[in-house]
């Protein structure tokens, strides 16, 4: 049901530019106004979110430790520096492994004693694999698009372009990243739809971005391989945007406006959704701090000195007599004169 809502919603989004540009000819609105607003909202929203997160305090240092701690003597036991870092640089490596290689997700796949078919483990490995494929191809595609926003085109973008199409299949050359991202998206959507466990926890805000990105990818693929749109015209428009001289050339295919509109929606949606895990992963206190709290004192900005333990003196006052009777040392002696001690009992 959640999936259906999301699909319908994305299809509606596709209709908007179709009607807007196709029927009403609002090219400036769809080509300039909406994208620039989206970019502004994206940047502002992203910054806002990061600021909001960083303004939340980090009162305690609570990394999840995934291996042997730094021992009292390094020659005695071997520290697992990447999973249980105790210094800044080690923590950076842990974060890099996390962000670039999805190390925690990979843990799922650790081989172990098991019975039954080996396939049992593959599903767990696949999540890691396809998540990695999806994210990397997404990244490459975004980087490739830089060619539309820069003149002259930087060398690394051209290089990326070349490598991505290195198989030299078809004309225009098929980018591997396009094929891989479709594969990745297909898997990520498929497991949400067919894996009962994942379906159970999935919300509209899980399906919606998936369908949205699928829409973006498909419209992009259609433009490149089927409609074979006029890229120079598009570059005219995009360069206009980045140089603040907005201008919409006449001969741009309608598919481009759909593509652009969906991208705008994605940018608008991004800062207010789970997609912010892009930023959040860097701020997760269980991963981005070293396990060094016995070596270096971490400061809690809101530590309240009024919250404190029951003072010893209080404790001794309550139990002094009993302590003295069994010979436990006390700070203050019992009130002297045993005769006096008896007197109140009689009173």
């Amino acid at each position: 049901m959640n999936a259906l809502y999301s699909l319908v919603f994305v299809l509606t989004l596709v209709l908007i530019p179709l009607v807007g540009v196709g029927a009403a000819d609002l090219k400036t609105i769809f080509g300039v106004c909406i994208p620039s607003t989206a970019i502004i909202v994206f940047v502002a929203g992203f910054v806002y979110k990061i600021i909001k997160w960083s303004r939340s305090a980090v009162p305690f240092r609570i990394p999840t430790t995934g291996g042997q701690q730094r021992p009292y003597d390094p020659t005695m036991f071997k520290q697992n520096k990447w999973d249980n870092p105790s210094t800044g640089p080690q923590t950076v490596i842990r974060m890099l492994l996390e962000v670039l290689a999805f190390r925690s997700l990979f843990r799922n796949t650790k081989a172990s004693l098991h019975e039954g078919p080996v396939v049992a483990y593959a599903s767990a490995k696949w999540l890691w694999l396809f998540a990695l494929l999806f994210h990397y191809s997404f990244f490459i595609i975004v980087a490739r698009h830089l060619r539309l926003f820069m003149e002259p085109i930087p060398g690394f973008v051209n290089a990326l372009d070349f490598v991505d199409g290195i198989l030299q299949i078809g004309a225009p050359v098929v980018y591997q990243s396009d094929a891989i991202i479709i594969l990745g998206l297909g898997y990520l959507l498929g497991r949400r739809l067919w894996d009962a466990r994942i379906r159970y926890i999935s919300l509209v805000n899980d399906y919606f971005p998936l369908f949205l990105i699928i829409g973006i990818v498909l419209s992009g693929v259609y433009m490149r391989y089927f409609a074979k749109v006029d890229v120079m015209a598009i570059k005219e428009l995009t360069m206009g945007l980045v140089t603040f001289h907005p201008h919409v050339p006449a001969n741009i295919d309608i598919t481009f406006f759909i593509h652009l509109f969906l991208v705008s929606v994605l940018l608008l949606y991004f800062p207010f959704s789970k997609l912010m895990h892009l930023g959040g992963v860097f701020l997760s206190p269980t991963r981005n701090l070293p396990n060094d709290t016995r070596m270096n004192r971490h400061i809690n900005p809101w530590n309240d000195p009024k919250v404190h333990a029951r003072p010893y003196a209080d404790y001794e006052d309550e139990f002094r007599e009993k302590m003295v009777n069994v010979g436990i040392p006390v700070d203050k002696p019992l009130p002297s004169a045993p005769a006096g001690a008896e007197a109140p009992e009689k009173a």
Binding site: S112, P117, D195, R197
Partner: peptide, 21 residues
């Protein structure tokens, strides 16, 4: 429950899924 069945059916590791196995 339905969603539990799927997990327990698929995961064949006797330590990760003692009930299903």
């Amino acid at each position: 429950p339905a969603e539990t069945q799927k997990v327990w059916k698929r995961q064949r590791d006797r330590f990760a899924n003692p009930v299903g196995v």
